[in-house]
Design a protein around this nucleic acid. Structure first.
Length: 320
DNA sequence: GCCAGTCAAGTCCCG
DNA sequence: CGGGACTTGACTGGC
C-alpha cells in the first residue's frame, strides 16, 4: 500500500507566507472610502494566493504531493454587505498562474471550509450562505483549472438536539444543493456530534466519499471498532477519480483530548496503517498537527528505519 | 517586540 | 432565553 502525506494550509518553515491574511468587517467599515477598502481586500486576496503559490513551490521542493488550501483566501468574500463585490475578477491571473504550476507539478489540492458552513441547517439563510461559500470554493478551483470533484471536505453539521432528525435534514437539504457543488463534497466524521456510522449513513445514501478522521473517531464513537466499517469507508470512494484520503492527528493531552497536538504520534499512525494495509492500493493521509509541515517532516523522520516501509520519496512510502 | 485582548462565524452549554 | 465558550489564525493596542 502506497501512503502519501500532506499537510494543512500553511507552513511553519516558510516565513511570511500566510495564505490567510484578513480584514474583519469592522476594519472594513473603518475605512471611509469604500472603493479603497475593497481595493485593500483585493490586495489581501491576491497576496494570499501568491503565498499559496509559494507554498506549492515549497511542497514541490520537499516532494509533498498533497495539500489543503486555506479557506480564508478571500476575506469577506461571503459577507452580505459586500454582495456587489466581484471578487473573482482581480484574481483571475494569479489563479491561472497557480493552475499552470499545478499542471507542471501535480499536487492533490483541496479545501476544508470551516464549520460555519452547514448543509443541514433548517434555516434557509444559513443553508444559502453555506452554498454561497461553497460556490466561492468552486470558483477558486475552476479558476485554477482543477476539476472540483471531491475537493471540499465538510462536516455533517449541527446536531440540533436530535441527530437522527439532523441527518434527515441533511438529506432534505441536499436536494437544494446545486449538482456541481454536490460533487465537490466529501464528508468527515466529527469529534462531537456525528460519528463514523452517522457519516457513513449519509455517504452511502447520497454517494459522497467519506474522509475518515481517526482522531475524531477516538474522541467520538458509538462503536470503537472502526475496522469493522472500514470496507464501507473504502466503498464510498469507488466512484471517485481520486485515491482515498483520511485525516490524521494526535490528541494534545488526555485532558484536552480533542485538541490537536504539535506533532503526530508515530505508534498510533503505524497501528492504523497496519490495520488497513492491503485494503487499498494508495491512501493519502492529511497531517493535521499544530506544527503543520514541520510535523510532517518530523513524522517522516520518526518513520525512517521502520521495517516494512520502503520510501518512494521525501513524503511517500510503501508499507508491506 | 512581546502579550493580552479582539475579531468572525453558528452551535452548544450553562444559568 | 440570553450571554459566554468554543476554535483558529491574524491582527491591534498597550507597555
Amino acid at each position: 500500500m502506497i501512503v502519501r502525506l500532506g499537510y494543512v494550509a500553511m507552513s511553519v518553515e516558510l516565513k511570511n507566507a500566510s495564505p490567510s491574511q484578513t480584514m474583519t468587517f469592522k476594519q472594513f467599515l473603518q475605512i471611509p472610502d469604500r472603493e479603497a477598502a475593497i481595493q485593500k481586500l483585493e490586495r489581501i486576496a491576491k497576496n494570499n494566493l501568491t503565498n499559496c503559490l509559494r507554498l506549492l513551490k515549497h511542497n514541490v521542493a520537499n516532494e509533498i504531493h498533497f495539500f489543503r488550501f486555506s479557506s480564508k483566501l478571500i476575506p469577506l468574500a461571503n459577507h452580505e454587505e459586500l454582495s456587489d463585490w466581484k471578487y473573482m475578477r482581480p484574481l483571475k491571473e494569479i489563479l491561472q498562474e497557480i493552475g499552470h504550476y499545478l499542471q507542471e507539478h501535480p499536487i492533490r489540492v483541496d479545501f476544508h471550509p470551516d464549520h460555519f458552513v452547514l448543509l443541514n441547517s433548517k434555516s434557509t439563510d444559513i443553508l444559502n450562505n453555506s452554498i454561497k461559500t461553497l460556490a466561492m470554493h468552486e470558483a477558486l478551483l475552476k479558476g485554477m483549472g482543477i476539476d472540483p470533484e471531491h475537493r471540499c471536505v465538510m462536516h455533517v453539521g449541527g446536531a440540533y438536539e436530535d441527530k437522527e432528525k439532523a441527518l434527515e435534514q441533511f438529506i432534505h437539504n441536499w436536494a437544494y444543493v446545486p449538482a456541481s457543488i454536490q460533487r465537490m463534497i466529501m464528508l468527515e466524521n466529527d469529534d462531537t456530534s456525528f460519528h463514523l456510522e452517522h457519516t457513513l449513513y449519509l455517504c452511502e445514501k447520497l454517494g459522497i466519499p467519506l474522509v475518515f478522521d481517526y482522531h475524531h473517531h477516538l474522541a467520538n464513537h458509538e462503536n470503537p471498532e472502526w475496522e469493522k466499517e472500514w470496507d464501507r469507508v473504502v466503498s464510498t470512494w469507488s466512484l471517485s477519480k481520486l485515491p482515498i484520503k483520511m485525516h490524521i492527528s494526535s490528541p494534545k493531552s488526555e485532558k484536552e483530548y480533542r485538541a490537536h497536538a504539535d506533532t503526530i504520534d508515530r505508534e498510533m499512525f503505524l497501528h492504523f496503517l497496519h490495520t488497513i494495509k492491503g485494503s487499498v492500493h494508495e491512501i493519502h493521509c492529511m497531517i493535521e498537527a499544530k506544527k503543520k509541515d514541520a510535523a510532517l517532516f518530523q513524522l517522516v523522520e520518526d518513520l525512517k528505519g521502520e521495517k516494512n516501509i520502503t520510501w518512494l520519496d521525501q513524503s511517500s512510502f510503501e508499507i508491506q
